[in-house]
Simulated assay, not measured.
Amino acid sequence: MRLEWLEDILAIGETGSFSGAAARRRLTQSAFSRRVQQIEDYVGVELFDRSHKPIRLQPTTLAQSEQILVLSSALRQLLVDLRRGERMTSNKVVVACQHSLTTVRLPKILQQLCAQREGLHVRLRSANLDECTGLLLSRQADVAIVYRLPDEASDFNADFLEVITIGADRFIPVFNTPLSQLSGSARQRPDIPYIAYPADVFFGKVMERKILPFLDAGAHHAQKVETALTLAAVEMAAAGIGVAWVPESLARARIAVGDLIDVSSELPACDLQVSAMRLQGSPSMAGTALWSQLLDQ
Rank of each mutant, 00 (worst) to 15 (best):
S17P: 05
S19I: 05
G20V: 01
A21N: 00
A22M: 14
A22G: 12
A23I: 03
R24Q: 13
R26P: 00
T28R: 07
T28V: 06
Q29H: 07
Q29G: 09
Q29W: 01
F32H: 02
F32V: 07
S33Y: 00
V36M: 05
V36E: 09
Q38R: 13
I39K: 02
E40F: 07
E40D: 03
G44I: 02
F48R: 00
D49M: 15
K53T: 14
K53C: 07
P54K: 00
I55V: 11
R56V: 11
R56D: 08
L57D: 13
T60K: 13
T61G: 02
A63E: 11
A63V: 02
Q64H: 10
S65D: 08
E66M: 00
Q67K: 14
I68R: 00
I68L: 04
L69G: 00
L69A: 04
L71S: 08
L71Q: 07
S72I: 02
S72R: 01
A74Q: 06
L78M: 10
L82T: 14
R83P: 14
R84L: 09
R84E: 05
G85C: 14
E86Y: 10
M88A: 10
S90C: 10
S90N: 12
S90M: 11
K92P: 01
H99L: 08
H99R: 07
S100R: 12
T103R: 06
R105K: 09
K108D: 07
K108Q: 15
K108N: 11
I109P: 06
L110Q: 03
Q111C: 13
Q111T: 12
Q111M: 13
C114D: 05
A115Q: 15
L120I: 08
H121D: 09
H121N: 14
V122I: 15
V122M: 13
R123S: 12
L124P: 12
L124V: 09
R125A: 14
L129G: 08
L129M: 13
C132M: 06
C132F: 11
L135M: 07
L136W: 03
L137H: 04
S138I: 01
R139W: 08
A141Q: 11
D142A: 13
